[in-house]
Design a protein around this nucleic acid. Sequence first.
RNA 1: GGAUCCGUAGCUCAGUUGGUAGAGCGUUCGAUUCACAUUCGAAAGGUCACAGGUUCGAGCCCUGUCGGGUCCACCA
Length: 728
Amino acid sequence: MEKDQQTKEQEIYKFWEKEGLFSADPDSNKPPYSLLMPPPNLTGDLHLGHAMQHAILDAVTRTKRMQRFDVLLLPGVDHAGIQFEGTLTKLLEKEGLSKHKLGREKWLERAWQFKKDVYKSFHNTWTVMGISADWSREVFTFEPRIQKAVFEEFKTFWEQDLLYKGAYIVSWCPKCGTAIEDVEMEYEERRETLYFVRYQIEQSQAKSDFVNYQIQDGDEFITIATTRPETIFADTGIAIYKNHPKFSKFAGKNAINPLNGNVIPIFEDKRVDKEFGTGALKITPGHDPLDYEIGKDHALPILHVIDKTGRMTELAKDLAGLKIDEAEKEAAKKLERSGSLIKTEELIHSVPICERCKTTVEPLVSEEWFLKMEPLAKKALGRIDEINFYPTNYKKILTDWLEKIHDWCISRSQWWGHRIPVWYCSKCNPGHAVGKSKDMVVSFEEPGKNLPAGKQDCQTCGEKHWEQDEQVFDTWFSSGMWPITTLGWPEKTKEIKRYFPWDFELTSPEIKYLWIARMIMLSLRFKDNVPFKNMFFHGMLRPLTGAKFSKSLGNAVYPDELIKAWGTDATRMTLYTYSAPGRDSRTSKQLMDERAKNFRNFSNKLRNIAKFTIELKPEDSATEMSNHEDDKWILEELNKTIEQATKNIEKFELHLATEELYDFIWHKFADIYIEKSKSRREEAQPTLEYVLETSLKLLHPFMPFTTEELWQKTHPGKSIMAEAWPTT
RNA sequence: GGAUCCGUAGCUCAGUUGGUAGAGCGUUCGAUUCACAUUCGAAAGGUCACAGGUUCGAGCCCUGUCGGGUCCACCA
């Protein structure tokens, strides 16, 4: 696109803003229509998926405005805890810096600086794309007002006994240094070694001298299969399935841990898979979720041989300090030396990895906060029918998930996020235990910070030694409140009364559980209503291989490049062709370019139609539309187009609406009608003008800049945005 | 293992109450001083994955098969 054009577009954008055309007016007597922008994560530039989302949102927004609604398109940005920290960490690594070198205060300074940079880039893209959001109402999920709201959220849950804190097995990312949720994990197929290890059955005589342990003739053994010999140090039992033909005779006896000589019980448990390995399972409650469950039921102790940084603990004796994969090899060698390793096999299985940093996730026991989800999910299930899903099958997908809901681990061991508003007395409660005890307080600020001694002291020791919980909330704990905090909750604002529930929300299917399901549950909990009436899931744009676009693979297509090459409107039109609800599309830079080029040609066609109609208007033109059959025909076609386009926008089928308009304007209006009109130009002129103006209005939601520019030719100083949507 | 979506022209995809197969790009042929070569006209190209069924009629509805994607669960 030419420089001039870009400048022109920026002038148009400023003109719209100056005229206040983006602003919602809660005092208006027009009916309200509200759209909620999914806040992009504060991590970098906006990608193609964002561009498509925002283009869709903006088209619906502009149509509704022209249909005389008081429209609110509310924009914002998500502070994106884990993802933001990951991005910033990479940035700092390049400078040889790290979180711990900088310290909390300096690090947060850098974080806010980085936030500023990303904001600049976001706003630039939004402006360039012509997004007509009400910027005066923009929200950042980490701003002070939202911090207050998140505190209210937590406090309410606390008062209703829906929160608990405790040591549970969680999925831990050693690189991010925090617990993560199942929904934040991916799986990767890996070729691994399956080790068959035999454990000696403890004889009735005294425990053998383990240091000089040698297998004797006549010893009895139980053999298990494991991919993780390094965790044997933390074994506290062996489970076999019921009536195991070879091993059931050992149930009730003890086995000797081949790595440290600990005596561990053998017992039956129905959760052991008959088909896998030997039918006997070593139980390591500290490092495996299933083992944790089994261990709990059999009252086994929990040992830790891997720490939160992914290294072996003192429990591993001479292997302490090793990384997990090194420890695996060393442990296998030890087992081999003692004759405990029977054989190895190759096993292909999928390993959980952190969605953000791709590090292998370790199941670990950690102190975390949890939110009880069952009551929330139940309510959501009862009212999910009130939402129209596009495509409709997403209702079932979400329903299935809600039916199998599990408690939500809401704490993260990070710095970038809403700090958990809980204070412990360091004197009476140094372990930060949680209960209804008097040495723990839920408070937004330090309790009694500005009060004289004696006020808000610890009620156990009568002194003031408060320290805040170190952890922060999962990002989604605040994002889940997005539909109501954006409108001022917990205050009872006129905005929330008027614009909630939202008429339209859209997102990528990737975050349907993380975000959409949570918004539904939380909105029902705090506002007793579903968050939105229409929930639109767009498809994913993928590379031709069908995988995923990724920055690191270098196959990503950037909206800015398309805009530079073909113009904003052409890029927007290209994105609409991919916007069928729930349909993934394969594409590439080349295919996007081809399509965008075509729409660039279309906007050129539109300019030429305008030039022909307006600039080359004959002097002695008629003033009334004629009844000529060609005129009647094009008006009929125009009416059909108005109907179709309106209907398809109503159903959020923008790919159909744009196709309809494209076909009408180019192939009916230009190719047929205009050609024929040349022989009776004066008579046709009023119809030409009418069809052009109506076409510009219909096209405006999709191609805002070109249509505004052409509109100005005949309506200087007046915006097409303020025009009424055409009807038949 | 469970769920879900998809399989339409060489490529990427539309095709929503079932009624004679569409777009863009690509290919071939032709036109063009008259708004536009960022153009116009025309052509070639499809047993709509396969097999049954419902129907006067199926790309669309039902059943099954094959192939691909995605999500969830499990993965010692």
